Amino acid sequence: MSSSDIFLGETIGTAVLILLGGGVCAAVTLKSSKARGAGWLAITFGWGFAVMTAVYMTASLSGAHLNPAVTVGIAVKTGEWGDVPVYVAGQMLGAMIGAALVWVAYYGQFLAHLTDPETVGDKPIEGPGPVLGIFSTGPEIRNTWQNLATEIIGTVVLVLAVLTQGLNDSGKGLGVLGALITAFVVVSIGLSLGGPTGYAINPARDLGPRIVHALLPLPNKGGSDWSYAWIPVVGPLVGGALAAGIYKLAFA
């Protein structure tokens, strides 16, 4: 596959991933959304189906990594690093496009949520509510080593699943069955390991939308939590490399 195919495939695929994944977060979170309050189960399955849709859509173009941690894991496994910058550039651009499209699709709901007073029962509360969580992840308890470890552990599970079950014949991306398996792995990670940090398990998925959140002209949107932002980048990259190391030791 050519560099242009890789870049285009990763851009389109990651944009679809974030549009559908961020979209379910917006649907569950924002006022005047028909799905508001649907809960964590809806979010985890929404992200799983987002992965499945994006992978099936773009696997023929780029192998559908859609995640720098997956790209690093495959590079460590194969020893081929030449296309890694192209993959990551497409993933970051796609993540930002997808986040912007979520904003467009839920524009009215964002305004209603951010300009109407928040309430708990009949009592008003201050602040915009968990709007940043539509775009990027954050911990329920801020503990640096635990938050980092959680992201590493979740990403090891994801990338090891990709490496052991999901690669196509070329070894550079997900096969047909692997896409379905990976989608359910993402659901499983969300249900089992998503509680502490929101399971970024993908640096582009977190950093790209966080940048978009910082840039969007939304009133009262709150900060972008840059002090935490390195954890969902470094943790998944470490996890991807560790998963490849485990694969080479145990399965190769």
Rank of each mutant, 00 (worst) to 15 (best):
A95K: 06
V157L: 15
A183P: 10
A179I: 14
G90N: 10
T155P: 06
G154N: 09
L174S: 15
T137W: 05
G90A: 06
T164Q: 01
G127A: 08
F184K: 12
L93A: 11
T144K: 15
E151G: 12
E126W: 09
I189Y: 13
L163I: 02
A105W: 06
P128H: 05
N143G: 05
G173E: 12
T155I: 09
F110A: 07
G133W: 12
S188R: 15
A89P: 01
G173Y: 15
I189E: 15
P117F: 04
G166P: 05
T182V: 11
F135L: 04
L148I: 06
V187L: 10
T115D: 02
D169H: 06
I125N: 11
Y106H: 02
L180A: 09
G138W: 03
V104N: 04
F135T: 06
G166W: 05
T119F: 11
G133E: 14
V131Q: 03
V156W: 10
A95H: 02
L111D: 05
A161S: 13
V120W: 11
L174G: 07
T155V: 06
V176N: 07
V156P: 08
L180W: 08
A149Y: 04
D122L: 08
V120L: 12
G138V: 01
V162E: 12
P130S: 14
S170P: 07
G171C: 12
Y107H: 12
A179G: 15
D122T: 07
S170C: 02
N143P: 01
A149Q: 04
T119Q: 05
L101P: 02
